[in-house]
Design a protein around this nucleic acid. Structure first.
Length: 548
RNA sequence: GGGCCCGUAGCGCAGCCUGGAUAGCGCAUCUGCCUUCUAAGCAGAGGGUCGCGGGUUCAAAUCCCGUCGGGCCCGCCA
């Protein structure tokens, strides 16, 4: 039942495409502001509003129509809405909110992308969890999504690393704590003094030198092993694990294509694509020593992915500091004649900044280790559980889920584009506008349902204010998902889910369910709300708990 | 120097795309509520020139221009 459409129909006699809005709480369900008609009708909006209500009559779906100053406010039939929406949710369950706009369409999401031989830092967290959530959101809309973890496993840094390892490397330290050791070597070797050596080794690596390759492979394997520990805790899986190195052998082909299109220009010994006509500077394709750069690799990867997946959209979930890079290489794709360049989108996010408000810099050893953050947050979650619900089963798994909810939600509730100052205190906050608050709400709802007897069919009687607010909120879940997808913004889901939980807690507090007069109806409402909270959290990559 | 992004209560944010009716929420502070469905909760109080200045509009936190403050980027890193 589309109530808004009913309102539009009622107004048709006066306006073809009336702009309908949602009035403040308590003033109705839909509103039509009359300002826009004032000039044409040469009357005040207040008069127009009065005229309109005299000309239209309430019907089965629109119960009441009132004039409120310059607005016409519509009150819909809540019983019909309630029946409709509760039945739908209880029938569709986990699928509620699904749409099939994305049928037979593919979306590639380039995300996470930690750098080999460096710790998984807080910087990669955003890309990982935003990408993961977007994947779930698009899947809900019927798209097939392919999450690609595009590892930073190629580049001059490996020259530095090899130099460092050859100079100070220690096999047993490497085995013991590979990332820590490699990071030390990297920081040590990250000195002007070793630059020529490092370049040399990277060149050898690109040319397939056996020793260089062997070390590189070792570093890569050890790193992936470490990363997988983190992904397991986060509960995130990828359809494809790839890396920049994957395209090493195809790079020549890209350069050849660029040459054929007459896009390449030599400049100070390097090969560049000049984008100054587009205000995008120059895109460096090949260094003067003949080795490649990430733009080359990204271009190559994009072409390959388009061939392989025939995607409808490719999202790059990467920090905003790389904005220019993406603008440049999308432009190069366009100039190369690939019309699908416009399906490539840089879904940028703000940075995690340190306490001074500056970017974290691995080179300077200024890093926050994801592994430690996870451990600390899970520890605090465990302690909280011990305190609040000592009898809970599977405390370790519950602690993990609560911690992940805190971290994921704490990030996803923010608008993507904002920078976030990293503060561990925020991760271990479980009260108020947090993931655990929502999980707790779910657990409360579950608890009611466990204690309820047999559920029967319900009939909708007079609804109180709290019930109406809940119903209205449940009713917009579909729109919320679509809006989140349009804006590539999990924050929209996060904030919706929080507000829904808030409304449920208010209802929970003021409306007894079990043994109440309309127990069956309220049970259905609890069940439906619980379901939508679950669906919302799942879109964020957060698990629910039946008890906590 | 050029480009992009951000600026809403003490702090952290939502709302801005798609302009409308008293600008929402959380933390912190103060006050109530656990013999009834989990107090990780609920109710209430205080706290705002929506950075600043112009413009567009019947109407601006929202759109446009300028300005200040912060962040990021600007060829051989990714």
């Amino acid at each position: 039942m589309d109530f808004k459409e009913e309102v539009v129909k009622l107004l048709k006699f006066r306006v073809k495409n009336p702009q309908i809005e949602i009035p403040p709480i308590g003033m109705g369900d839909y509103a039509f502001p009359c300002f826009s008609l004032a000039k044409e009708l040469k009357k005040s909006p207040n008069e127009i509003s009065k005229d309109i209500i005299n000309k239209i009559k309430p019907n089965k779906y629109i119960e009441k129509i009132v004039s409120a100053g310059p607005y016409v406010n519509f009150f819909i039939n809540k019983e019909i809405l309630t029946q409709d929406i509760l039945k739908k949710i209880l029938k569709e369950k986990d699928k509620f909110g699904s749409v099939n706009e994305g049928k037979n369409k593919k979306i590639v999401i380039d995300m996470s992308s930690p750098n080999i031989a460096k710790p998984f830092g807080i910087g990669h967290l955003r890309s990982t969890i935003i990408g993961n959530s977007l994947s779930k959101i698009y899947t809900k809309l019927g798209y097939k999504t392919i999450k690609i973890n595009y590892l930073g496993d190629w580049g001059t840094q490996f020259g530095k690393l090899i130099v460092g390892y050859k100079k100070w490397g220690n096999a047993s330290l490497l085995k013991e704590n590979p990332i820590k050791h490699l990071l030390e070597l990297y920081i040590k070797a990250n000195d002007k003094e070793y630059e020529p050596d490092a370049r040399d080794w990277f060149k050898k690596l690109e040319q397939g030198d056996k020793e260089a390759l062997k070390l590189w492979k070792l570093f890569k394997e050890l790193s992936i092993k470490e990363f997988n520990k983190i992904y397991k805790i986060l509960g995130i899986k990828f359809e494809v694990i790839s890396g920049e190195s994957f395209y090493n052998k195809k790079m020549d082909e890209t350069i050849k294509k660029l040459k054929n299109k007459h896009l390449l220009k030599e400049s100070e010994g390097a090969l560049v694509v000049n984008l100054e006509d587009y205000n995008l500077g120059v895109c460096l394709i090949q260094k003067s020593d003949g080795t490649t750069l990430y733009a080359t690799r990204d271009i190559t990867a994009a072409i390959d992915r388009n061939n392989k997946y025939k995607f409808n959209k490719m999202l790059y979930e990467v920090g905003s500091e790389q904005k220019l890079h993406f603008q440049q290489f999308f432009k190069v794709l366009e100039l190369m004649g690939y019309s699908w360049y416009k399906d490539c989108i840089h879904v940028s996010h703000g940075l995690y900044l340190d306490k001074e408000g500056k970017k974290f810099a691995t080179r300077k050893g200024n890093i926050v280790y994801m592994e430690e953050i996870l451990k600390e947050t899970i520890d605090i979650a465990k302690k909280t559980i011990e305190k609040k619900n000592p009898k809970l089963k599977n405390k370790d798994e519950a602690a993990r889920k609560v911690a992940i909810a805190a971290i994921f939600f704490g990030d996803l509730k923010n608008n993507r584009v904002h920078d976030i100052v990293f503060d561990i205190e925020k991760f271990i906050d479980f009260e108020g506008n947090t993931g655990p608050y929502i999980q707790y709400t779910y657990a409360r709802a579950s608890s009611i349902l466990r204690k309820a007897g047999k559920k029967n069919s319900f009939s909708v009687k007079e609804l109180n204010e709290k019930e109406i607010l809940l119903i209205n909120k449940l009713n917009i879940f579909n729109e919320i998902i679509i809006s989140a997808a349009r804006q590539n913004s999990p924050a929209i889901i996060a904030n919706y889910t929080y507000e829904l939980a808030q409304l449920f807690n208010e209802f929970y507090h003021s409306c007894p369910v079990l043994k109440s007069d309309n127990e069956w109806f309220r049970l259905a409402l609890v069940q439906a709300t619980r379901q939508v909270i679950k669906n919302g959290l799942n879109l964020l990559g957060i698990d629910v708990l039946e008890e906590m």
